[in-house]
Write a protein that binds this DNA or RNA. Sequence first.
DNA 1: TCGATAGTTCGATATTTTTCGAATTTTGGC
DNA 2: GCCAAAATTCGAAAAATATCGAACTATCGA
Lengths: 101, 101
Amino acid sequence: MRHARLPASEHIALEDVFHALSDPFRLGVVRRLAVEGEQSCQALEGDRPKSSVSHHFRVLREAGLIRTRNEGVTRMNALRRDDIEQRFPGLLDCVMSRAND
Amino acid sequence: MRHARLPASEHIALEDVFHALSDPFRLGVVRRLAVEGEQSCQALEGDRPKSSVSHHFRVLREAGLIRTRNEGVTRMNALRRDDIEQRFPGLLDCVMSRAND
DNA sequence: TCGATAGTTCGATATTTTTCGAATTTTGGC
DNA sequence: GCCAAAATTCGAAAAATATCGAACTATCGA
C-alpha cells in the first residue's frame, strides 16, 4: 500500500491546519477523536458516501492532524495530539473549548 | 454608508475564524494587526489590487476577527483582540506563536 | 463645488474544493 | 484462491473562493 503523506511535526503548517478545521465535518471528526480516541473511518462517517469521507480524512491527514494505521481490514484514525500540542500549544484546547455551541 | 456586518462576540463561529485564517494573506494581516495595532488597508496591502485586499478584509470582518472604523478618508482596521480572547481563549497566542516560521 | 484619496461593490473569469459513483486496492477468513 | 469488508483512487460535475478591472461611494481639503 502506498504510504499516506503525513507531515513531520515540525512541518505542520498553521494555514493547512486552519483550512482542515474550517469544514464542519472535519472539525467534528477532530473533536470526536479528541474525546473518544482512535476510530475507524466508518465509525465517524455520517450518512455520506465512503469516497467523501475518505477525502476528508485525507485532508486531515495531509494537514498533519491525524495519523492512520491499519488494523486488520479497517484503518484506525488517531489525533496527533502530542505533535499538534508541541507545534501549536493550546490549539487543541481552543478547538475543544466551544465544542457544544 | 452601509454598515459592515460584524458578528457579536458570542456569535463568532470557529469554522469561520479558521476559514478566514487559512489564507496566508489574511493570516499575515491578523499577525501584523496583533503586533502593530490598528492599520489602514493600504498599509497592509502587498502589491495586489485594492479590490482583492478589500475582499480579504471583508472576510476577516465577517468572521469576527477585525473591526473597521472610519478615520477621515481612510478606514482603520483593528483586531478584535478581547472579543476573540473571550470567545476562544488562547487562539490568538496560537496564531502568534509560530509567526516566524 | 471640484479634485484627490481610500475603500467598496459589481461582474466576469479562474482556481480550488467538495461531492459522489464506479473501479480498484488491501486485508482477513474460509 | 475466492469472497467480503473497509477504505482509497479516479474522474467528472457542482459549488465555493479568489482575483482583478471598472464603476461607484465617502470624506477631506482647497
